[in-house]
Design a protein around this nucleic acid. Sequence first.
RNA 1: GUCCGGUUAGCUCAGCUGGUAGAGCGCUACAUUGACAUUGUAGAGGUCACAGGUUCAAGUCCUGUAUCGGACACCA
Length: 726
Amino acid sequence: MSESSDTKSNIPDLFLKPYEPKEHEDNIYKAWEDSGYFNPDVCIEKGVTKTDAETFSIVMPPPNANGSLHAGHALFVTIEDIMIRYSRMQGKKTLWIPGADHAGFETQVVYEKKLEKEGRSRFDLTREELYAEILDFTLSNKSLMESQLRQLGASCDWSRSLFTLDDRVKKIVYATFKQLETDGLLYRGARSSNWCPKHQTSFSNLEVEHEERVDPFYYFQYGPFVIGTARPETKFGDKYVVMHPNDARYKDFTHGQTIELEWINGPITATVIKDEAGDPEMGTGVMTITPWHSGVDFEIAKRHNLDYEQIIDWRGKLLPVAGEFAGMDIREARKKIVEKLDAKGLLVRVDKKYEHSVPCCYKCGREIEPQIKEQWFIDMKPLAKKALEALADKKFEFVTERDERVFIHWLTNIEDWPIARQIAWGIPIPAKVCTDCHHGMVDLDNTITACTKCGGVVIEEPDTFDTWFSSGQWPLATTDFGGLSNDFEKFYPTSVMETGKDIIFFWVARMVMLGLYRTGDVPFKKIYLHGMVRDKHGRKMSKSKGNVISPKEIQDKYGTDALRMGLIVNNAPGTDMNLDPDKVNAYKKFANKLWNITRFVLDNTQDYTTEATHTKEDNDFEETYLTPAILEITNNMDKDRYDLASERIYHFIWDHFASTVIEESKPLLAQGGAVRSSRQKLLYHYLVTSLKVLHPFMPYVTETIWQRLPAQLKDSKFLMIAKWPR
RNA sequence: GUCCGGUUAGCUCAGCUGGUAGAGCGCUACAUUGACAUUGUAGAGGUCACAGGUUCAAGUCCUGUAUCGGACACCA
């Protein structure tokens, strides 16, 4: 072929070797980032996006900056990047704001484990020292985490990246804290709280897991009564005996009546309390109460204005009230106390198979010890009411409808939120506490020197915020609410909140409530919740099972595009998805298939000129197959069914484009003349369309190919900003 | 206890507003200097958990059963 120039004939040669992801991904990402097109302002500046274009924005759930990204991160990055790239190709003003989470308690736990390995302990360090060490640790992890986000192909706007401890965040969080006080929605009070004796902090109910257990249930003689308990170690201070007012068995006892009886460490005086909390069906229908170490008991005590006393200290050891058992760990004391009561003839019987659920620390599994503690609480009912109204008014919606009912249920039954944590790693609570009357005062400017209520001496609040309190305001911080830029006006409410369904209460619900509270508007219009990533047999990934698959190792082996496809195809929104390396491998092959398709097309179109026109047959062919395919794919994209869209694209390219169109083209191309040039035009059209619709899913291989296509075929320099086909 | 989901090919899962089943992997046989062995062609394999019901017609809607799982709440 004398007329083909050297440069032309070299083009297919670029595709001679199989597609090797590692050779291209880093360069492609760098080219994207350098182009500035991740930033919508740059897109407008350079004429890629129209000034009056529709806006599409997502706030990224900031990954914890305390380790490597796991498969769950890879999933959310993929879903959100698909949304973002699709939106950008549709010409929308598209913004994806990345960030990093200091992840308060989570990170402190990770760091404590690291300390333990080094033979150190958090309790050897001052708060300031611990904070400084964790900050170093977090910042170095943050950059590692960000480079992993880049490798996954996240087309987010790094110029707007935010860290949850940045001043901008604190400023908003503090203002919210103050406003809550002003509006009477913040209070400090003694309440039963979930205390972890290992981690030395309290938790909200969401951070407590309930473990099903079978334990012995002991019946003891308590004066004239037989009481049942699974927790003998709390019984030292029990001097109230409670029963239902209508329980006929105990009608001879009257409320307030005192009874002398022999107990663990000698004779005591007990008082009879008639309260409807006493369940006649449970045990003997009689119980003693330990208000300091049981939320329910505390409520009973408050109703009847009873005394309460701490029995177990903050480390889980018995206090002097336990007499000879003082200082003993409760886990050990339990047996010993039963032995002693048995020796005294007070053990009536033991039911060995008592099934119940025990509250445990979600992090270490240690039994939660309820403790009365002065705590900061937010009155959630008014906030929840607004959120429910906004949902009813369709201010926002759920993609996965079944989550809506779960959301409503939780908000309807919401409890007050304890927002203080007794840990160093977090945003300090800007407040003073009165040492006399325990009144708490928000003090943003550090100006309060005496109690505003009683004039007493105040001390600085040592606790930090629950990390979800600040995270709950993340959409405000990332869109620069109250700041100098006009991002808030442009991008709030954001278009979609995409995150894991495991944090629907922790995070999503609180963002809705706090967003509404501060701005009067919801933080996002749509909620897309994904499930958990499991191993290929559907088992939860865990280190102990040894079935953890890191995104990095999958990317190294099969490429980022293949990983993304493996996470998306055939995985319906909101369902748990299983990551199978064999499936990922199938998409590695697919990338290569596309690579070779390109090679074939370029090989057979070197004499193509843009003046070529379609024959009627080819025109009809496109109308019959290509146009409906684009329509169907686009429809599924618009319905957030990326699982269906990606599968359709896969089969369109492999079964239709490669197996049918290309095969049928071979003899037609050989005919030459108008038939040949028409086919060339059709092949190009198929190729360009395929690259475009596949790009949100497999951005690297499609962009790599795009960069190697002749300029005459392209409507933009980068596929990333090319026009979505119609 | 309250609520929610699943049960479809050997494995992992799709199947939208009802019309006698699909994908990936795996398996079997054959092909191969032909854009691609990271391939092609052909094929085996499913009474769609079970029992009733609605319907001309039910994985697809209703009721119940079994079984697995999840969320929330909670106990003495």
